[in-house]
Computed example of a mutant assay.
Amino acid sequence: MIQIFPKEAGHSARNEWLESHFSFSFGPYYDPKNVQFGPLRVLNDDIIQPGNGFGVHPHREAEVVSIALSGQLKHEDSLGNSGVIEFGQVQRMTAGTGILHSEVNPSETKPGRFLQLWFFPDAKQLPPSYEDISYDTSLLKNQLVPIVAPNSSKGIAKIHQDATVYLSKIDAKEGLEYKQKEGRKIFVYIIDGKVLLNNEYAIEKHGSARIADIDFLKIDALEDSFIMLIDLPGGEQ
């Protein structure tokens, strides 16, 4: 089963310093039918204006992943961690028993765009932790590159959940395939461009697909496209 959620199925918000698109219920936007997909609880696509951002705020019992798409994002937290990421880098924070952090665009001139994802962890009361990793952006061309996974290695951040996050930049008229194990789910998000799934379902920028009970997924780019694919455990949600 493939369910397509166009941009309009979520919620968009804008103020003087922030433009956001929420794929799931978040903040003032609440839809009881759109709370999560498996352990994926939040996917926000944010553009932050220079010198602005999210001030110090708390998190608990969440795996928070920030993926820089353009510009810069600066993280600081109550553990004393600090880091700035840009395209080709990812932050992973385990909130666990509780952590305070801030995320701002440190540039004085350029907006920054990033994805923020929250996953429910696979265990409660984990000690808070933070890491940032770099991956080779040249590998993204027409193939899926893992950047977050349950087991860390070079260029892959460790997440406390049975989920793997992939990125790919697909040239127009090119495509790729993904084989899924039985009983698992796939979430696809279009960062830029437009693709066709299994020769039938078109989806474009800010749109997503929630996929279950399918062991083979074909993704064809109808134009130059940038996508995120997340392999998730199965379950009722």
Rank of each mutant, 00 (worst) to 15 (best):
N15P: 03
E16Y: 12
E16R: 15
W17I: 14
L18W: 02
L18P: 00
L18Y: 02
E19S: 15
H21Q: 04
F22M: 12
S23G: 04
S23H: 11
S25L: 07
F26R: 06
F26H: 04
P28L: 06
Y29G: 05
Y29K: 08
Y29M: 02
Y30E: 08
Y30I: 07
D31R: 09
D31F: 00
P32H: 11
P32N: 10
N34F: 01
N34K: 14
V35G: 01
V35Y: 00
Q36G: 02
Q36R: 14
F37A: 05
F37M: 09
G38Y: 01
G38E: 03
G38A: 01
R41L: 11
V42Q: 01
V42E: 02
L43Y: 05
L43M: 12
D45A: 08
D46E: 11
D46P: 01
I47D: 00
I48N: 02
Q49F: 10
N52E: 03
F54R: 03
F54Q: 05
G55D: 10
V56A: 10
V56T: 15
H57C: 01
H59C: 06
H59G: 10
R60I: 14
R60G: 04
R60F: 07
A62V: 14
A62Q: 07
A62D: 00
V64W: 01
V64Q: 05
S66L: 07
S66C: 03
A68G: 07
L69N: 09
G71Y: 06
G71L: 10
Q72C: 03
L73T: 02
K74G: 02
K74V: 01
H75P: 00
D77V: 11
D77K: 14
S78N: 09
G80P: 00
N81Q: 11
S82H: 08
S82T: 13
G83P: 00
G83M: 03
V84D: 04
V84G: 05
V84H: 04
E86C: 11
E86F: 09
E86I: 04
V90L: 12
V90N: 00
V90A: 07
Q91V: 06
R92G: 06
M93E: 03
T94C: 12
T94L: 08
A95S: 11
A95Q: 08
T97F: 12
L100E: 09
L100D: 03
L100Y: 11
H101L: 07
E103L: 09
V104A: 05
V104C: 01
V104W: 02
N105M: 04
P106V: 02
S107C: 08
K110P: 00
K110A: 09
K110H: 13
P111E: 14
P111M: 11
G112T: 12
R113C: 04
F114I: 10
F114V: 09
Q116A: 08
F119L: 07
F120Y: 13
P121K: 11
P121D: 11
P121N: 13
D122T: 09
D122H: 11
D122M: 12
Q125R: 15
P127W: 13
P127Y: 15
P127K: 15
P128A: 15
Y130P: 00
Y130H: 12
Y130F: 15
D132C: 05
D132R: 10
Y135K: 07
Y135F: 15
D136Y: 09
T137M: 13
T137Q: 08
T137Y: 02
L139T: 09
L139K: 15
L140N: 07
K141S: 04
Q143G: 10
L144G: 03
P146D: 02
V148N: 03
A149S: 15
P150Y: 12
P150C: 12
